[in-house]
């Protein structure tokens, strides 16, 4: 079923009583072809979907990304805890998770060919864009601690999902704490 039942968009009439009419500026028309053509030097224009679509909807079907969407599976050291949790709006690694990170550091230094992706996540509070940055800081905090233990830069990639991929979908702390996390994903 494609219908969505519970979307909350609100319209809020704003009444300005200081009287002046607020006619928006009508900017000059943009020269469309220059704006929308894929940037010639941009590497991403070679992606199969770039510039695609001639009708109303542009369908995207890249199986690689579908796989990424569920990339929580770890093929690394299965006995290690692979999730670090954070306090609200914080990115410092709490003492109780330090040991887990150090265990990963030990594994990575012993296995220099192993690589890990650190995924940073947030709860839904705050704006989506800001949470991309916050998720990045969480992943980076884990990366820093790994590096301090001697793990090579080349073994670590960081990635931020912001609030986009929650593991719990509720709207209270019961869900939020589970979503404020950094996840070790081995390849």
């Amino acid at each position: 079923m494609r219908a969505l039942k519970s979307l909350g968009l609100l319209v809020l009439p704003v009444v300005l009583l200081f009287g002046c009419s607020s006619t928006p500026e009508q900017p000059a028309a943009v020269k469309a072809p220059e704006v929308t053509k894929p940037k010639p030097e941009a590497p991403a224009t070679t992606k199969p979907d770039a510039g695609a679509g001639t009708g109303s909807a542009t369908a995207i079907d890249t199986s690689k990304e579908k796989a990424d969407a569920s990339a929580d599976k770890s093929t690394g050291p299965g006995n290690l805890k692979n999730t670090v949790y954070f306090d609200f709006d914080r990115f410092d690694i709490k003492p109780e998770f330090r040991e887990a990170v150090l265990a990963h550091a030990a594994y990575l230094t012993k296995n220099p060919s192993a690589t890990v992706k650190i995924e940073g996540h947030c709860d839904e509070r705050g704006t989506r864009e800001y949470n991309i940055a916050l998720g990045d800081r969480r992943a980076t905090a884990v990366r820093q601690l790994l590096k301090l233990q001697g793990v090579s830069d080349k073994q670590i990639a960081t990635i931020s999902f912001g609030e986009e991929r929650p593991v719990a979908l509720g709207h209270d702390e019961d869900s939020w704490w589970q979503n404020r996390r950094a996840v070790f994903a081995y390849r």
Partner: peptide, 15 residues
């Protein structure tokens, strides 16, 4: 991306 609404044509502008 920037996408033209009428045609669906789109392109990467920052990556």
């Amino acid at each position: 991306y920037v996408q033209e609404i009428a045609t669906g044509t789109r392109g990467v502008v920052a990556d």
